[in-house]
């Protein structure tokens, strides 16, 4: 029997539904999460199964309902908040950075904040500068938070279930361009531990470390490289924190060349951190400086031609990788 396939959006929904069936403390809070099922329709059907007390429509009030989730988590619930566009996390920063991330530490371990924030990243949806950013580096910078960047439907389901069961505040970034991507997703109740990277494709000549939306780009580039006789390994860290440094370093040692790809800004960003981890851990095994590729350092423009120029493509990655291997 062929493996069952789900879209990325369906995998997210299935993870939520399974966890809500398993644990009555799990609830969803966000703008238009109930009957509307969010503008991306990721949550369609959940309010019908779980009711409006557990799938709660909020006002357009990101700081308010994120703060409510922090307190509700402390007082015994396991809320999942939905921040429609990743750009809007700016509105929640005090709640996430000064409150959620620090409660456990500041209280000497006495209070916990088991909450999840689901939000989106990714450009090329023609949504312009305030609906297209990939700001996951911001949360990755803060001790006390965990950050997940799923790149396949399989990973989305398993990682989201782990996030909901985690005792800490976890931020789960979904690439909004990937919601329709299909892939095998088992019907079982499986989880994927946080902090374990996944080698998406094995290779010997160069490592492409890629996150979220860039994993598909890296796999496409690896196909192009293969035609040139260059064998690329694609490693997906899956979580920026906790970070599986060992798998990244081992792959770098094996291939001796690394490109790090992430859709956020590289400046003080995820690619910079991953490149530094690899440089520190595999310096004497490298044949070339670690290369970073990410969003261009501009606000995301509207005009399609301009917007597309801001994000690395398969062709860009292929060319950079080929030149590194020559």
């Amino acid at each position: 029997m062929p493996e069952r396939e789900l879209t990325f959006a369906q995998a997210v929904r299935e993870a939520l539904a399974e966890e809500m069936r398993r644990d009555s403390r799990v609830c969803i809070l966000g703008e238009d999460v109930a009957e509307a099922g969010t503008p991306f329709k990721v949550l369609s059907g959940l309010v019908e199964e779980f009711g409006a007390k557990r799938v709660v429509d909020t006002p357009i009030s990101e700081a308010g309902f994120t703060g409510v989730a922090v307190g509700a988590a402390m007082a015994g619930m396991r809320p999942v908040v939905d921040i429609m566009f990743g750009d809007f996390i700016t509105l929640t920063m005090d709640q996430m950075v000064n409150q959620a991330a620090k409660v456990h530490y500041m209280s000497g371990g006495h209070w916990k904040v088991p909450m999840v924030m689901r939000t989106t990243l990714g450009a090329t949806r023609r949504s312009a500068a305030q609906h297209s950013q990939s700001l996951h580096a911001w949360f990755s910078h803060v001790p006390g938070l965990k950050v997940i960047l799923p790149s396949t439907p399989y990973d989305a389901k398993g990682l989201l279930k782990s996030a909901i069961r985690d005792e800490n505040p976890v931020v789960f970034f979904e690439d909004k361009m990937m919601y329709k991507l299909k892939g095998p997703v088992p019907e079982d109740d499986y989880t994927i531990p946080l902090g374990v990277a996944d080698v998406k494709r094995e290779g010997d000549d160069i490592t492409l470390v890629a996150t979220s939306s860039m994993v598909q780009v890296a796999l496409g580039a690896a196909d192009l490289l293969d035609r040139e006789g260059i064998s690329a390994e694609v490693v997906d860290p899956r979580t920026t924190w906790p970070l599986d440094e060992e798998t990244l370093i081992d792959s770098a040692k094996k291939t001796s060349r690394v490109i790090v790809l992430d859709e956020g800004y590289g400046r003080y960003g995820v690619t910079s951190e991953l490149a530094a981890v690899i440089a520190e851990g595999a310096f004497y095994d490298l044949d070339a400086p670690v290369k970073r590729m990410g969003a261009m350092h501009v606000p995301i423009p509207f005009s399609p031609l301009l917007e597309d120029a801001t994000v690395p493509t398969e062709q860009n990655v292929f060319e950079v990788a080929r030149s590194m291997c020559q």
């Binding site: 703060g67 409510v68 922090v70 307190g71 402390m74 015994g76 619930m77 000064n98 409150q99």
Partner: peptide, 25 residues
């Protein structure tokens, strides 16, 4: 005691969220 807070107004979300949990549980 859910905690004293050094951000002015920083605990209003936590308090309201605890009330949300108190009611929903």
């Amino acid at each position: 005691n859910l905690g004293a807070n050094a951000i002015v107004g920083g605990s209003v979300g936590i308090a309201t969220g605890a009330a949300f949990a108190a009611k929903n549980l």
